[in-house]
Design a binder for these strands. Structure first.
Lengths: 110, 110
DNA sequence: TCCATATTTCATGTATAATGGAAATGATTG
DNA sequence: CAATCATTTCCATTATACATGAAATATGGA
């Protein structure tokens, strides 16, 4: 993962509402949630949520699929996994072999 | 880990220079680096670095120890581990037992 | 004590991001 | 095709974060 992508992902998550949205989608799992139910659950205006969903999408943290009139959002766990990989890499004074086996385990069945 | 702490940590890392500083300290391992060598390595002014070190310290991502005239900084891997734990928790539609064994592996010998 | 070195603190101008009202788009229903 | 619902886009205001110059603090050495 490139550093610029990492910064985009971290900036996207470093926001009160967006962190809530992302975690809600993580909890929702493969079912995801529509923009409307996200807004209702978190009690935020639709346009504010929309702006934040754009930012999460641009960061690759969520994906969306139209479903009739609504649009359903899903967390992209791969992106999270790649972020964790970047943050942990080259750990421990240039001896990645100490951490690599651990990083290899960071996968999620989602 | 509390959500407010998570936001503080993410905000601290979501910054070009601070991400460089943190990763440099991660690579440096237990030896750490002085503020001066960090500034020289990254080619940034001392007061700019200092401001950023304050932010990283407040987020619990680094710790420091005076060493003569210099001050030596170290990455706090525990904080990173806790962050990862928070981001992954309650994964997969409220079935944490799917991810918990994975999270339990996220430890670093640093 | 006086000076040099290392780092931090303060104050400030500027750039960037966040919110929310209003309007626009896209999709379904009658 | 009009009406309605879900969501997004546009825009203006406000708030926040950033880098920097200058000054202050702390340590070690002459």
């Amino acid at each position: 993962m490139e550093k610029s992508s990492v910064l985009t992902v971290l900036s996207a998550l470093a926001h009160d509402t967006r962190l809530d949205v992302f975690r809600l989608l993580v909890r929702a799992g493969p079912e995801g949630m529509t923009a409307g139910s996200l807004a209702a659950t978190l009690d935020i205006r639709s346009n504010t949520l929309s702006n934040n969903l754009v930012i999460l999408s641009a960061a690759g943290l969520v994906r969306s699929a139209r479903e009739g009139r609504a649009i359903r959002y899903f967390a992209r766990m791969e992106q999270m996994r790649d972020l964790l990989g970047f943050l942990m890499e080259d750990c421990c004074g240039g001896q990645p072999e100490l951490c690599q086996p651990v990083l290899d385990q960071i996968t999620c069945p989602c």
